[in-house]
């Protein structure tokens, strides 16, 4: 028995099966990501001054990843248009580029952006000890400029064993530029191009630290929401790439010979999903990287 409306639209709805299916799925996805974005916004609005990290993400790398995803949206549409024009080799070419873009995005995220954070350390100073660490925080200078105070000393942890060994009473931190030169006006705001780490090492007593952690979800609400949303988004990118690889493999050539319109419809549905995933990133990028 042949399933009806796989390639032609149902007369009463004007839609074929997979299209109505993907839009119902995307509606549920809007609710999923909408809930997470709402949570992020409310958590951020309610954060105490100085307790919402800013400028910790690499803006040029985020911009590059945004451009990669936008390019992949263009190529997936061109792949679909090529199928509609019955140009199979062009379809393979554009789909190949789409797959490549998706893989590059994931590699940048998983092999560069995330691991850097796993090796970056931050120690939040207790309110009573803020004055003691003023040379690294520069809060008097920030107050004058009307900026939020700094409550964290961050950089590379030179003695990582201090995280687990209770007998070690100090963290030795190779400082980030903002803590090495807290009075430098360039460090008052998040930088577009990340500043290189200094050679200065600060010795921070564990008694003065409220919370010490690598830049992992435990570090702050910011990183908890960052890893949740970008992780979920990354899984969606991975899912899209897997589907695209399937539609690019020889199985697509067989389907193309048998029923080219059915292949075009499959690509259209996968392309709709891909556009949604890219649209989510268009919101993730300014929210996490810029604002």
């Amino acid at each position: 028995m042949e399933i009806p409306y796989t390639t032609t639209a149902r007369p009463d709805t004007g839609l074929w099966n997979a299209k109505i299916g993907i839009w119902l799925f995307l509606a549920s996805e809007v609710m999923l990501f909408g809930g997470l974005f709402s949570a992020y916004i409310f958590l951020r609005l309610d954060a105490a001054p100085g307790h919402w990290p800013r400028g910790l993400l690499n803006v040029p790398v985020g911009t590059m990843n945004t451009a990669i995803l936008i390019a992949s949206s263009v190529t997936v549409v061109l792949a679909w248009a090529a199928l509609k024009m019955r140009q199979f080799s062009k379809y393979k070419f554009y789909m190949g580029i789409t797959i490549l873009c998706g893989i590059v995005f994931l590699v940048v995220k998983l092999a560069y952006e995330w691991p850097i954070k796993f090796h970056h350390f931050g120690a939040k100073i207790t309110p009573a000890a803020l004055e003691k660490y003023e040379p690294y925080l520069g809060n008097a200078h920030l107050r004058e400029g009307g900026y939020e105070p700094r409550v964290e000393i961050s950089g590379h942890l030179e003695n990582p064993e201090a995280l687990h060994d209770e007998s070690i009473r100090e963290y030795h931190i190779k400082l980030d530029a903002a803590n090495a030169e807290p009075l430098n006006p360039d460090n008052d705001r998040p930088r577009f191009w990340p500043a290189p780490m200094s050679d200065k090492i600060a010795h921070v007593s564990k008694d003065d630290v409220q919370l010490a952690s690598m830049y992992v979800p435990k570090h702050s609400t910011f990183f908890a929401t960052y890893f949740t949303i970008t992780g979920l988004h990354g899984l969606h990118v991975l899912g899209g790439v897997i589907v695209f690889i399937y539609l690019w493999l020889p199985v697509s050539a067989r389907l193309y010979k048998r029923n080219p319109e059915q292949l075009a419809n499959r690509v259209e549905v996968a392309g709709l999903f891909w556009h949604f995933v890219d649209l989510v990133w268009i919101f993730v990028f300014p929210l996490f990287y810029l604002l």
């Binding site: 839009w23 936008i70 949206s73 709709l272 556009h275 268009i282 300014p286 810029l290």
Partner: peptide
């Protein structure tokens, strides 16, 4: 909405993002 319609919406949103990012910079 078809893929081409969604693509036009996507490009519109992306253009707005680029413009607002430019203004922010």
């Amino acid at each position: 909405m078809s893929l081409k319609g969604f693509h036009i919406v996507f490009i519109t949103v992306t253009t707005l993002l680029a413009l607002s990012l430019g203004v922010w910079c």
